[in-house]
Structure formats: structure tokens, C-alpha cells
Write a protein that binds this DNA or RNA. Sequence first.
DNA 1: GTCCCAAGAAGCC
DNA 2: GTCCGACCAATTCGG
DNA 3: CCGAATTGGTCGGACGGCTTCTTGGGAC
Length: 468
Amino acid sequence: MVASEERGDFPLNVDTKRDSAEMIKTKLRASENLLKECYAQFPNYSGIVKCLLENPMEKLLDICRLTVGIPLRPMLGKITQDLTQVFKKSEGKLLNCEYKYDGQRAQIHMDSNGVVTIFSRHLENMTEKFPDIVQVIPRICSDGVTSFIMDGEVVAINSDGQLQNFQKLSNRTRKNVELSKISVPVCVFAFDLMYLNGQSLLKLPLRNRRDLLHGNFVKVKGQFDFVAQIESSDPEEVHSFFKNSTEFGCEGIMVKVLDDPPSKTGNNQRTNLLASYEPDKRLESWLKVKKDYINGIGDSLDVVPIGAWHGNGRKARWWSPVLLAIYNPDAETFEGVCKCMSGFSDQFYAEMKLKYSKENGNISETKKPYYDVDDGIRPDVWFEPLEVWEIKGMAAVGNVDHEKGLSLRFPRFVRVREDKSVENATTSEQLAEMFFNQVNERKSEKNISIEGVLEDKNESDENDYASN
DNA sequence: GTCCCAAGAAGCC
DNA sequence: GTCCGACCAATTCGG
DNA sequence: CCGAATTGGTCGGACGGCTTCTTGGGAC
């Protein structure tokens, strides 16, 4: 990757004659890391290549640096199953806990000419989709703000300014959006600031970035706000904050390291408790705590596998995905509810392939009359209804096509329910109940109305997916 | 040539 | 978005 | 004390649901 002739003898350059194999390896690794770091904040290969052709590699980060108008790869949160492990890892340090809103990530740039660009998590340019956000940006800047890059979550709200679910946000038009015709208003909840007035803030600890964010921007009712947050090291306090977040209609919380460790010495190199903004990384310094990760309190369903497709690539030897069904005791049918391909180990795949095989007579080409599955869903094979699996996910209901009724967001396999027979699988009534429990949980929170969710419920009722 | 619909692609999570 | 497995490097373990 | 085994972290692949947007073919 590193051509040596042109760039002489700068340290990263490999000298194939003089360097030991070990040294070459080290240098290549260093170059690779440098390039990665560069790409994370300046994902533009033509720019990087041009820079490398004209400059020594040491200059790379100085030249291809964080730039307004060019998106950086966002820092990501690490999944955490258990709130208590958060405190073990943080060693009593103060943590910034923030609501994790159910919306869409947005990286907002404003250059020194006031030109606003909005990027998605995968660096797509979303500016066209959010003219309302573009329009409000001048009003959020305090005096003296000339340029910035900010990280936040775009969330759908209703006319009263209350949070709507993700589905609602999906209903927004994406192309040629006219300001006057926006049907789904949104609010930006900001949580980080990576660049301000010509300066990169990436290396600053979160505490400083957060304070700069709060100090240089102002709320605009219903359009721009900061994420709800507390600073704490108290497990009780954080736990109740987490609970509040889910009752408020959020997915959970983010728990972030606020300050850099006093000294690096003695610190385990594996524990990445950095308070800086690390583009494109998923470190322990940002922990994502969601209800459905946590054992016992997420939505779980007992379903029957009723069909499957031939897998691709790495899963070419197995059945993947698998079609899963809930049970309708009145009609004595199995109703397809979702496909699932996550949570299975290779060993489980192997056993599944053996069990559902021609040899064992448990598969067939034709759909059983007591399988109630949308015509559009045509598995390669149909299974005999043999067993019950526990799966996890989030009960959700679509807005557009209510005929589809309830479904499951992020379905994944948890375990086989040896103790259950197929007639004891979750029923459609129970699934509906699960969804409404989520709704009622939010409803019970005084200050928060959940008009949007209730609307969904009513509309859905009209389509009677939950009746009889 | 225009309209309509279904299937597929692309984009969020 | 979730999850698994492959891979790598740092850390710990055992002789 | 050093090599082997273990552990923790990163990365890539395989796909989930929902939605809007695009596209291609058939009817008229």
C-alpha cells in the first residue's frame, strides 16, 4: 500500500532492505492505523490519495482533517446487557447519561457561509429531506458561532410537540421535500459537538464538548433541543433515569464517559474509557442500554418455525432465514409473524438442517392449509410444526398497511422452549397485548401524552388485527 | 403516449 | 438495527 | 521467565421490518 521510492525515509515508510520483518510489520500496521483514523474523519479517497501523492504520510492528518461539509463517520454505542456492568467498568467515575431517542441519527454541518448540510449515520446526504431543520439552524446559533459540526437525533413529533415513534418518522417524504408540505414535523435532539468555529473538538473530553454545545446553541421549541441528560455515578439514580427514558418513549439510554482518566499509567490498555469523540468506533466509553437487551424485561415471544429459505454466503449450508408463526387457537392456524436469522449458532444451524430434512420427513414443498401466511411470503421449504422457540424483539405496528398488523422489530432467536408444545405458542391476542402494554406504560407517565401511539392503536383496532 | 400497479432497490432503524 | 464467528493483540496462566 | 492458552476487542457478513422511491411491463 505504501510505495516507498517517492517519499524517501520518513518513519512510516518501509525499507525492505534494512528493516527487519518485525519492523516492516510494525510500520505497515502504523500506516494502516493512520489511514483508518484519517478515513474516519475524512471519508474521501480521492482527497486522501491526492494528499498521499503530494505529501509525506505524516502530514496526512493535518491535511485531510475534519472538514465542514464532509461527514465524519459517527462514533457508536456499545450494546450493554446489564446496567450493573456499566458501573463496574466506570470505576465510580461520573457518567453522562442521555436519553436514547427513537429516531434517526443526524450529523449537522454549518459552514462559515451559513450553508447547512445534514448527513445520516451512513453518511448519506439528507439535507433535501429536512428543509425544516436547515431553516431552523440560524436560530439555534448563539452569537459568535460561525461554523460547526453537531451530532444529534431527529425525532418525529406531533403538533403538540410530543414524541412520536420511529414509524412516524419513516412516513416523511424523502425527495423534493417542500417546507410548506411537511406532514411529519421533527425535532432535533443534539448530544455532541465535534467542530466549532474552525476548530476540531474531537480530542476534547465529552465534558468540554458538551459544555460548548450547551454554551453556543439555544433551544427552539419543538424544533431543536438537547437530549435529556444527567451526570451521575450512582447506580440507583441511573437506573431510575433509564426507567424514565423508556416511559418517556425512548429506546433506553446512552451512558458516556465524561472525563479522560487522570493518567494513562496503570490503566489496562483494553479498557477504552476515553472521553474523546472517536469517529467510527464502538467503544466502552459510549454504552447503549436498551430495554430489550436486558434479560427478563424485553419483549419475548414463543413462536413455531414453519418454513425457511436456503441461506447465502456464510450460511449457504443452513436454513436461513426461518419463517416463524404465532398460534391462533380459534382458527387452529399458525400465523406467520416474522422471519428470523439472528441469534443462531452454527451448531444450532447444523442441528436444524438435520431435523428439518427430507430424510426426517419434516419438510415439504407445499404450504399447509393451517398455515396463515401472506401470499407474498414464499419460503423455499415448509416445516412441520414441531417445536417452540423463544425469540426477542420489539413489538411494533406499521402505519401504512394495517392488514399486516403487528410485527417484531429486530427479531432474534433466544432458545428452544422444550417445555412448550406448539399449541402453547404465543397467540395473536398476547402479541397485541404486549404492544399495548408498551403503549400503556408510556401513557401512565403524566406529562407525556402519546397521541401518536394511541392513534396507531385506534387505527389498528379498526383493522381488527387484534380482535377475536 | 399515459396511467397504473407490482416488484425491487435503497434507505432508515 | 442484531447476532455470530474469524481474527488479532494484550493479558494471564502454567511449567 | 517464557511460551501457551485465554480473553477482550474489532470487523465483516448475513440478514430482520418498515417505509418511500424507482422502474418496467401491460392495458388502454
